[in-house]
Amino acid sequence: MPDTASEPVAVLAAVALVAAGIACLHRSWRAPARRAGQVAAGWGLLAASVVFWVRAGGVEFGPAYGCLAAGLLALGAAATSAAPDKAGRRARRPAGRLVLSLRPVPRHLLLFALAVPVAGVAAALASAAAVLALPWSGVNRMAAAVLLMPVLWGAAAYWVVADPGRYRPVAGLIAAGAAGAAALWI
Protein backbone atom coordinates (compact mmCIF):
# COMPACT_ATOMS: atom_id res chain seq x y z
CA MET A 1 0.00 0.00 0.00
CA PRO A 2 1.64 3.27 -1.07
CA ASP A 3 1.69 6.44 1.06
CA THR A 4 -0.60 8.30 -1.29
CA ALA A 5 -4.26 7.39 -1.70
CA SER A 6 -4.05 4.95 -4.59
CA GLU A 7 -7.54 3.75 -5.46
CA PRO A 8 -9.36 6.46 -7.40
CA VAL A 9 -12.80 4.86 -6.96
CA ALA A 10 -12.36 4.61 -3.20
CA VAL A 11 -11.07 8.21 -3.06
CA LEU A 12 -14.05 9.45 -5.08
CA ALA A 13 -16.48 7.53 -2.86
CA ALA A 14 -14.79 8.88 0.27
CA VAL A 15 -14.87 12.47 -0.99
CA ALA A 16 -18.53 12.09 -2.02
CA LEU A 17 -19.48 10.77 1.41
CA VAL A 18 -17.59 13.59 3.15
CA ALA A 19 -19.26 16.17 0.92
CA ALA A 20 -22.69 14.65 1.55
CA GLY A 21 -22.03 14.52 5.29
CA ILE A 22 -20.90 18.13 5.42
CA ALA A 23 -23.92 19.16 3.30
CA CYS A 24 -26.27 17.43 5.79
CA LEU A 25 -24.62 19.13 8.77
CA HIS A 26 -24.58 22.46 6.94
CA ARG A 27 -28.30 22.27 6.12
CA SER A 28 -29.32 21.18 9.59
CA TRP A 29 -27.18 23.65 11.53
CA ARG A 30 -28.12 26.56 9.30
CA ALA A 31 -31.83 25.78 9.68
CA PRO A 32 -33.78 27.70 12.32
CA ALA A 33 -35.33 24.52 13.81
CA ARG A 34 -33.52 21.47 15.14
CA ARG A 35 -33.12 18.62 12.60
CA ALA A 36 -31.76 15.73 14.62
CA GLY A 37 -32.16 13.20 11.80
CA GLN A 38 -30.12 15.28 9.41
CA VAL A 39 -27.39 15.82 12.00
CA ALA A 40 -27.19 12.07 12.64
CA ALA A 41 -27.09 11.41 8.91
CA GLY A 42 -24.30 13.96 8.50
CA TRP A 43 -22.11 12.41 11.18
CA GLY A 44 -22.98 8.94 9.89
CA LEU A 45 -21.86 9.78 6.36
CA LEU A 46 -18.62 11.27 7.69
CA ALA A 47 -18.01 8.09 9.72
CA ALA A 48 -18.80 5.91 6.69
CA SER A 49 -16.30 7.85 4.58
CA VAL A 50 -13.50 6.60 6.83
CA VAL A 51 -14.05 3.08 5.47
CA PHE A 52 -13.28 4.31 1.96
CA TRP A 53 -10.37 6.49 3.13
CA VAL A 54 -8.88 3.40 4.76
CA ARG A 55 -9.46 1.43 1.57
CA ALA A 56 -7.75 4.16 -0.45
CA GLY A 57 -4.86 5.02 1.84
CA GLY A 58 -4.52 2.17 4.34
CA VAL A 59 -5.44 1.96 7.99
CA GLU A 60 -2.69 4.38 9.12
CA PHE A 61 -3.13 7.15 6.53
CA GLY A 62 -6.84 6.76 5.82
CA PRO A 63 -8.21 8.39 9.00
CA ALA A 64 -5.75 11.28 8.58
CA TYR A 65 -6.94 11.85 5.00
CA GLY A 66 -10.54 11.72 6.24
CA CYS A 67 -9.99 14.34 8.96
CA LEU A 68 -8.14 16.67 6.59
CA ALA A 69 -10.74 16.33 3.84
CA ALA A 70 -13.70 16.83 6.19
CA GLY A 71 -12.09 19.89 7.77
CA LEU A 72 -11.25 21.41 4.39
CA LEU A 73 -14.72 20.87 2.92
CA ALA A 74 -16.40 22.18 6.08
CA LEU A 75 -14.26 25.32 6.08
CA GLY A 76 -15.09 25.72 2.40
CA ALA A 77 -18.79 25.43 3.21
CA ALA A 78 -18.42 28.00 6.00
CA ALA A 79 -16.56 30.35 3.66
CA THR A 80 -19.27 30.10 0.98
CA SER A 81 -21.96 30.93 3.53
CA ALA A 82 -20.03 33.89 4.93
CA ALA A 83 -22.47 36.75 5.48
CA PRO A 84 -22.13 40.37 6.51
CA ASP A 85 -23.06 41.09 10.10
CA LYS A 86 -26.50 42.67 10.31
CA ALA A 87 -25.25 45.13 12.88
CA GLY A 88 -22.94 46.56 10.22
CA ARG A 89 -19.49 48.00 10.75
CA ARG A 90 -19.13 49.30 14.25
CA ALA A 91 -17.17 52.33 15.30
CA ARG A 92 -13.63 51.68 16.49
CA ARG A 93 -13.08 51.66 20.19
CA PRO A 94 -11.76 54.96 21.49
CA ALA A 95 -8.01 55.31 21.89
CA GLY A 96 -6.77 55.28 25.46
CA ARG A 97 -3.60 55.02 27.52
CA LEU A 98 -2.28 51.70 28.73
CA VAL A 99 -2.57 51.58 32.51
CA LEU A 100 -0.49 48.86 34.11
CA SER A 101 -1.36 47.65 37.59
CA LEU A 102 0.79 45.33 39.67
CA ARG A 103 -2.12 44.19 41.82
CA PRO A 104 -3.16 41.14 39.76
CA VAL A 105 0.44 40.04 39.12
CA PRO A 106 0.79 37.74 42.18
CA ARG A 107 -2.46 35.95 41.29
CA HIS A 108 -1.33 35.42 37.70
CA LEU A 109 2.09 34.21 38.84
CA LEU A 110 0.42 31.72 41.15
CA LEU A 111 -1.88 30.55 38.36
CA PHE A 112 1.13 30.21 36.06
CA ALA A 113 3.03 28.14 38.63
CA LEU A 114 0.04 25.86 39.13
CA ALA A 115 -0.98 25.56 35.47
CA VAL A 116 2.47 25.06 34.01
CA PRO A 117 5.14 23.45 36.23
CA VAL A 118 2.88 21.94 38.91
CA ALA A 119 0.26 20.66 36.45
CA GLY A 120 3.06 19.38 34.20
CA VAL A 121 4.74 17.37 36.97
CA ALA A 122 1.38 16.03 38.21
CA ALA A 123 0.38 15.04 34.66
CA ALA A 124 3.72 13.29 34.10
CA LEU A 125 3.44 11.30 37.33
CA ALA A 126 -0.25 10.51 36.85
CA SER A 127 0.11 9.37 33.24
CA ALA A 128 3.17 7.24 34.03
CA ALA A 129 1.31 5.63 36.93
CA ALA A 130 -1.95 5.22 34.99
CA VAL A 131 -0.34 3.09 32.32
CA LEU A 132 1.16 0.75 34.93
CA ALA A 133 -2.33 -0.60 35.49
CA LEU A 134 -2.66 -1.56 31.83
CA PRO A 135 -1.95 -5.21 30.88
CA TRP A 136 0.61 -4.14 28.28
CA SER A 137 4.33 -4.60 27.70
CA GLY A 138 6.77 -2.04 29.05
CA VAL A 139 7.30 -0.49 25.61
CA ASN A 140 3.58 -0.03 25.00
CA ARG A 141 3.08 1.46 28.45
CA MET A 142 5.87 3.98 27.95
CA ALA A 143 4.55 5.01 24.55
CA ALA A 144 1.02 5.41 25.91
CA ALA A 145 2.26 7.51 28.82
CA VAL A 146 4.35 9.76 26.59
CA LEU A 147 1.36 10.46 24.32
CA LEU A 148 -1.15 10.74 27.19
CA MET A 149 0.91 13.17 29.28
CA PRO A 150 0.39 16.37 27.21
CA VAL A 151 -3.37 15.79 27.08
CA LEU A 152 -3.51 15.39 30.88
CA TRP A 153 -1.26 18.43 31.33
CA GLY A 154 -3.48 20.55 29.12
CA ALA A 155 -6.63 19.36 30.90
CA ALA A 156 -5.03 20.01 34.30
CA ALA A 157 -3.96 23.50 33.26
CA TYR A 158 -7.52 24.21 32.14
CA TRP A 159 -8.91 22.92 35.44
CA VAL A 160 -6.52 25.05 37.51
CA VAL A 161 -7.53 28.23 35.70
CA ALA A 162 -11.25 27.49 35.26
CA ASP A 163 -12.17 26.19 38.70
CA PRO A 164 -13.50 29.06 40.85
CA GLY A 165 -12.54 27.12 44.00
CA ARG A 166 -8.79 27.70 44.14
CA TYR A 167 -8.00 24.89 46.58
CA ARG A 168 -9.86 22.14 44.72
CA PRO A 169 -7.54 21.91 41.68
CA VAL A 170 -4.46 22.37 43.89
CA ALA A 171 -5.60 19.48 46.08
CA GLY A 172 -6.46 17.48 42.97
CA LEU A 173 -3.06 18.02 41.39
CA ILE A 174 -1.22 17.18 44.61
CA ALA A 175 -3.33 14.05 45.06
CA ALA A 176 -2.82 12.94 41.46
CA GLY A 177 0.91 13.58 41.63
CA ALA A 178 1.30 11.85 44.99
CA ALA A 179 -0.75 8.85 43.87
CA GLY A 180 1.32 8.67 40.71
CA ALA A 181 4.60 8.87 42.63
CA ALA A 182 3.42 6.21 45.08
CA ALA A 183 2.41 3.87 42.25
CA LEU A 184 5.77 4.40 40.54
CA TRP A 185 8.18 4.15 43.47
CA ILE A 186 6.47 2.31 46.30
Binding site: L25, R30, A79, A82, P84, D85, G88, R92
Partner: peptide
Protein backbone atom coordinates in the same frame (compact mmCIF):
# COMPACT_ATOMS: atom_id res chain seq x y z
CA UNK B 1 -19.82 25.61 18.73
CA UNK B 2 -21.42 22.97 16.48
CA UNK B 3 -24.69 24.78 15.96
CA UNK B 4 -22.74 27.80 14.66
CA UNK B 5 -20.15 25.69 12.86
CA UNK B 6 -20.95 27.24 9.48
CA UNK B 7 -21.64 30.79 10.61
CA UNK B 8 -19.03 33.24 9.34
CA UNK B 9 -19.81 36.97 9.62
CA UNK B 10 -16.62 38.40 8.18
CA UNK B 11 -17.85 41.85 7.25
CA UNK B 12 -19.37 42.69 10.58
CA UNK B 13 -17.81 44.40 13.53
CA UNK B 14 -14.21 43.47 14.20
CA UNK B 15 -15.00 41.43 17.29
CA UNK B 16 -17.77 39.41 15.64
CA UNK B 17 -15.72 38.71 12.54
Amino acid sequence: LFRDAFSLRMRGGRRIG
